[in-house]
Design a protein around this nucleic acid. Structure first.
Lengths: 196, 196
DNA sequence: TACAAAAACTAATAAGCGTTAGTTTTGTGT
DNA sequence: ACACAAAACTAACGCTTATTAGTTTTTGTA
């Protein structure tokens, strides 16, 4: 009779959710079964239901926790008096850190949000839209202040957000490049380009 | 008794695979059922098996067709005598066009390859690795020839490939920006950066 | 018009799914 | 040591899944 172990500052529900993030990342939400999740914890599937409400709820917890983290950071950046390039740099670096610190959760939020049920799906997409819009606003302001070259703001935001998402692939290659070099190179590439 | 309609230059299998790509993109491979696919064609699920081998086979067809298209284009670029920046520009523009022309298929290849079964999974990942390596080689050569600034080549390749993948989100916003403007802005951003 | 092949159908199978009910074990505070 | 609550267990439910077998309908050709 194995037991679910909660880490120091978390509930058992948190421990389950953490494991779920890892499983959902590896196999995808729909291809992950509750029996598999339970196995990875060392317990029977039905035992999980003493701590969680449903499989869907696990996905919701993961996605909205990630969204919250990004939204809170964004609010801080918006409140700062930095110029637009600095704000973008700040945001890019935060994305990189989130991806490296909370790999499983960010990955799942990025890839499995489609499997959210209504009304959560709508809520999530809405939050993402607002986040994108805030970044577009920063770029637009930068263009007006001639800090940023004339480019379609949404294209720039799309490029930045997508590039940063690509760090998902990084875990395979971590050995070759240090985090700081990675971070600086990517920031430099996205802000100043490749050409000399 | 409905019938499966093959388009002019394709088999019925092709018609099914095309529909499958659309369905897999919308709902994910694992969350798509053969009954659903059959419904969208207007036929019973079991009838599909007169034309295809299995659900997995559909995914394989989609993923490897996309991989082939990219590999063939890459071979052409490698054989050309262009400098490295032009090669990269050529590749970026091809990725953009593929994403816009074969949206469903490229999306599925990008998102659902994890659901491939062995040995196809290994094969697919191997091909992608080779593709990445070829791009790294182009960037490295560019750096040596001082056409490209000093940057970790893999970071640059990762940034480019990820940015281009982000065009998946484009279909939602097509109305606001023309394809050419999008293409030019993204190429410009990735090669020359944002700052003035 | 008749015959054969292609392609649709109905029906069923076995396996796996999330989840629930009911029971037993474990841990905690007195 | 006893009682109570938390959390594990076993067993089962109803449902969906991909796929197969066997049959009927449609289509193309002689």
């Amino acid at each position: 009779m194995a037991k679910i172990k909660a880490s120091r500052n978390g509930t058992k529900k948190d421990a389950i959710t953490k494991k779920a993030a890892g499983l959902f990342r590896k196999k995808g939400f729909a291809s992950s079964s509750m029996r598999e999740l339970a196995d990875s914890i060392g317990v029977e599937a039905s035992s999980l239901y003493n701590h969680i409400g449903s499989k869907s709820e696990l996905l919701q917890s993961i996605c909205f926790k990630v969204a919250d983290d990004f939204n809170k950071h964004l609010a801080g950046v918006e409140g700062s008096g930095e110029n637009s390039i600095s704000k973008l740099e700040n945001l890019i670096r935060f994305h990189i850190h989130m991806m490296l610190d909370s790999y499983d959760e960010v990955f799942v939020a990025n890839h499995e949000w489609k499997q959210l049920q209504e009304p959560f799906l709508n809520d999530f997409l809405n939050q993402r839209k607002l986040y994108e819009n805030a970044l577009v606003e920063i770029v637009t302001t930068g263009i007006n202040k001639t800090e940023i070259k004339n480019i379609h703001p949404y294209v720039a935001v799309l490029t930045i957000l997508s590039a940063v998402r690509g760090l998902e692939f990084w875990h395979r290659h971590k050995k070759n490049v240090g985090i700081e070099e990675l971070e600086n190179d990517m920031v430099n590439h996205l802000l100043k380009g490749l050409t000399k």
